[in-house]
Design a protein around this nucleic acid. Structure first.
Length: 269
DNA sequence: CGTGTTTGACCAGCGC
DNA sequence: GCGCTGGTCAAACACG
């Protein structure tokens, strides 16, 4: 008797997991589609012109000292230079999980938390504690559109080679007694920085439509996305950011095909 | 007792 | 110049 009920419970769990996996796959496809659309738009001459203009702006600003490159010596708000934008990682967490923990394989020490005006969820500030001199910091905040998604913004590069496990990769061995922030990634994660940065900018423009596009996968999703992208392109800020992001993605990852690679760490089909 | 977290205060850049 | 805001500091606290 117990065996039968146990088997039924097991089957139900398997079905539930399969359903979740299906949702994840649909999300992944939607994101991939969005990035491909943007990538195609980039190929248009006006996009390339925008990129040239935005690069010119960066150069001018840097020469005038308007952009702060010296993060270590300034406590104030920092404008990241265009060529060194922080990596942004979106991590889906359990809806009931209220912790601001992004599992990336590094050891982090929390040094502050703040509620920002742009997002009602608190933002947590972490410093890499795997090496005393490591300058890397990260900010973790829940995505204002979907509180189950954590947005981690990384600033700087690790000056040490050691990680508890390879960052941003799942592994079966989690160190015992490690800081909770060092645990390994949640099942759904994207870590292409340009794509995510773009997605982030995209989200700020129109929360409702973005949620529809990203969170759901309907038969006419592609049409909706294309319509929305078309409207976004009229926004000069968006086009500059997007062109810059796509260009860098292409430059940095020549071997990747079909636009940007949204690595969601999904199981192989 | 050592280490990490919490949280209010403080600092500095930015916009008006 | 002033207020707002994001980022950091550091004392108090919690936990193993």
């Amino acid at each position: 008797m117990c065996l039968v009920s146990g088997w039924e419970a097991y089957s139900a769990k398997v079905k539930k997991l399969e359903a979740e996996l299906q949702n994840v796959k649909e999300e992944n496809n939607t994101l991939r589609l969005m990035v491909q659309i943007w990538s195609n738009k980039y190929k248009q001459p006006e996009f390339q012109l925008d990129e040239i203009r935005s690069e010119q702006r960066v150069t001018d600003s840097s020469e005038n000292g308007l952009i702060n490159h010296d993060h270590a010596n300034k406590r104030a708000r920092t404008e990241f230079p265009m060529e060194n934008k922080p990596l942004q990682v979106f991590v889906r967490t359990h809806p009931k999980d209220n912790s601001l923990i992004v599992k990336d394989g590094y050891l982090w020490r929390k040094y502050g938390q703040k509620v920002t005006k742009s997002n009602s969820s608190p933002r947590a500030y972490y410093r890499c504690s795997m090496a005393p001199t490591c300058p890397v910091k990260k900010k973790v905040q829940r995505w204002f559109q979907d509180k189950s998604i954590l947005v981690a913004t990384y600033d700087g590069e690790h000056n040490h080679g050691t990680t508890i496990n390879d960052p941003l990769r799942p592994s079966s061995s989690t160190p015992k007694g490690s800081n909770s922030s060092t645990d390994l990634p949640s099942p759904i994660m994207a870590h292409d920085k340009e794509a995510i940065a773009t997605l982030s900018g995209f989200a700020k423009t129109d929360p409702e439509q973005t949620e529809n596009s990203v969170q759901r996968s309907e038969p006419n999703t592609q049409n909706k996305i294309e319509e929305y992208v078309g409207s976004l392109i009229k926004d000069p800020n968006f086009t500059v950011a997007l062109a810059e992001a796509v260009a860098r993605s292409i430059t940095n990852k020549p071997k990747q095909q079909e636009g940007l690679n949204l690595n969601l760490n999904l199981p192989e089909e």
